[in-house]
Amino acid sequence: MFAYIVKRLLAGLVVVVLISMAVFALFWFGPESPARPVCESKTGGKCTEERLANFEESLGYNNPIYEEYGKYVKGVFVGRELTVGTQKIDCDAPCLGYSFKNNTLVWDDLVKRMPATVSVAAGGAFLYLALGIPIGVAAARRRGSLTDKVLVSTFLVVSSVPYYLFALLAWIYCTLVFEIPVLGSSGYTPFTDNPWKWATGLLLPWLCLGLFGCTQYTRYTRGAMVEALSEDYIRTAKAKGLPASTVVYRHGLRSALVPVVTVFGIDLGVLLAGTIFTEKIFEIQGIGLWGLNAVGAKDLQVVAATALFGAVVMVVSNLLVDLVYSVLDPRVRLS
């Protein structure tokens, strides 16, 4: 088990390194000098060729790429000293660079924005399961009935609307049109500042994520449940004289959850890596919005950091999925 985890983490590290290289290379070899956006911003749009050359020199873009990448990696593990314009900044490990746009250290921003994204993701993910699984089970138990058909087709309609449109409409109707009191006050307040405001501010984003995302969980759960309920061991459970609820939940749902958990692990990773649409529409200063703005501003270090962060989250969540899988299904042996 331990050896397996170590092996998977090492493999994950390789993935993360490759992704960081790819992101680094993408900007380095891009059509425009990576120093130009910095130069434009620092000189107030008066970036002459001469100034650009100075920036390129001071930012290290005249050095070979592997040397700069080496410095970057070194910064992540032991920290480094950054040169920004004329000043020198100590960047302690893990150093992900300096955002010229925000004039902050990237790691500090990442840490600062993480709680918002985690809050959004956790609430949304909770609703995925809390809504999706019971509705899926209900539909599977009444397979072929009117209830089942109504649920399945409603959810098909919901999930065929693009998410950004769904969230935007929800926001417009809840805040602008109907001015629903609790839902209207969306926005992020740290939990530690005011738990009530934290919850009410995130309620609408949670509901949007949850209602939209739960449709696919309903489908997964329904499908897995229909399959599980037709298994021989369900007939055995009934033949033992177990009550219907025990048969459905302890025997049926227990099996049906395995594929659902697998998908959920991946989805949770995706959510944690940044809920871009949700953060943008509800103005939540999380990692998704941060990354989106950085792409617009060509803020290389921030983009690289969000990509790296996403990669780490995905590697870890994949590993967790496999570990949970081995707990859920005793036939799975990790090696």
């Binding site: 021989d232 061991y233 055995t236 459970a237 033949a239 033992k240 177990l242 099996s255």
Partner: peptide, 19 residues
Amino acid sequence: RGNSAAMIFQDALAALHPF
């Protein structure tokens, strides 16, 4: 069921819960 009248099934691998 399972009390005064019980049933055993073919293919016990499928008929027992794998988990």
